[in-house]
Amino acid sequence: MEIISKEFIKPSSPTTMDSKKTCQHLKQSLSESLTRFYPLAGRINDSNLCFIDCDDSGALFIEAQVHAQLSEKLSQSTAIEELNQYLPLELYAHDADNIPLAIQISFFECGGMAIGVCISHKVADAMSFVTFMTTWADGIFISMQV
């Protein structure tokens, strides 16, 4: 056998972005996804009957900075309580009952990130959640190609 060539093929577009630009892509694609999944942008009204007020209030979006390396956090034996800090809402918190969708993007010093998503089971089941996340991910990919 004779090797004819050996080279490294680089990505066709830059793959590393700063957190500000990454957040911009995440927000833009989220906004576009919420148009298709509009109940997630409303509010849950439980006063008399459980219904969704599709008032375009929007999903809660939180951006956080973790003052540590992702590898440090992954190598520690973490209790579930510590992992909850990467979620946008406190689990079972009464004041978050009316928000159907909340997202927290946590950026680490190394450039890595964690995406925590809380979705109300009053609005979406597991399949709906997966479908929404797939739509959002597709939108992120498309927005990064532009």
Rank of each mutant, 00 (worst) to 15 (best):
T78D: 01
L34H: 03
G58D: 11
Q145R: 07
V130T: 12
I9S: 12
I105S: 07
D53T: 09
I80G: 11
F108Y: 13
P11S: 11
I140S: 04
K27G: 01
C23Q: 05
I140Y: 02
P88V: 09
F37K: 02
A59Y: 02
P39L: 08
H25C: 08
K6W: 11
Y38F: 15
S71N: 11
M1V: 09
D56N: 12
D138N: 15
D97F: 08
G139I: 06
P11L: 07
K122F: 07
L40D: 00
N98P: 00
I80F: 11
V66Y: 00
S19N: 15
S29N: 06
T35R: 08
L30Y: 04
V123H: 07
P14Y: 04
V123L: 06
E32S: 13
L89E: 09
F129N: 04
E63V: 15
L83D: 06
M1K: 03
A93W: 00
V130P: 00
L49N: 11
E109Y: 03
Q24Y: 09
Y38R: 14
E109P: 00
T35Q: 14
G111R: 10
F51Y: 05
P14L: 06
E7Y: 10
S19V: 08
T35S: 14
D95T: 13
A102T: 10
K73E: 12
I115G: 02
L101Q: 07
S5I: 05
A41M: 08
A137T: 15
Y38L: 11
M17N: 11
M113N: 05
L26G: 03
S47R: 08
C23E: 05
D55L: 12
C54M: 12
M113F: 15
D46Q: 09
V130F: 03
L60A: 10
Y38P: 10
K27Q: 09
F108D: 05
Q69C: 05
N48F: 14
I62V: 15
L91F: 09
W136D: 04
S57E: 14
D138Q: 11
E82P: 06
F132S: 11
E72I: 05
D125Q: 06
T15W: 01
I142D: 02
K122I: 05
I105E: 01
T35Y: 01
A41V: 12
S31R: 07
G112I: 12
H121W: 00
F132P: 05
A93M: 03
I99T: 14
I119Y: 04
T78M: 10
K73A: 13
E32F: 08
S31A: 04
D56F: 04
R43C: 01
S120R: 04
K20W: 02
L49H: 07
L49I: 03
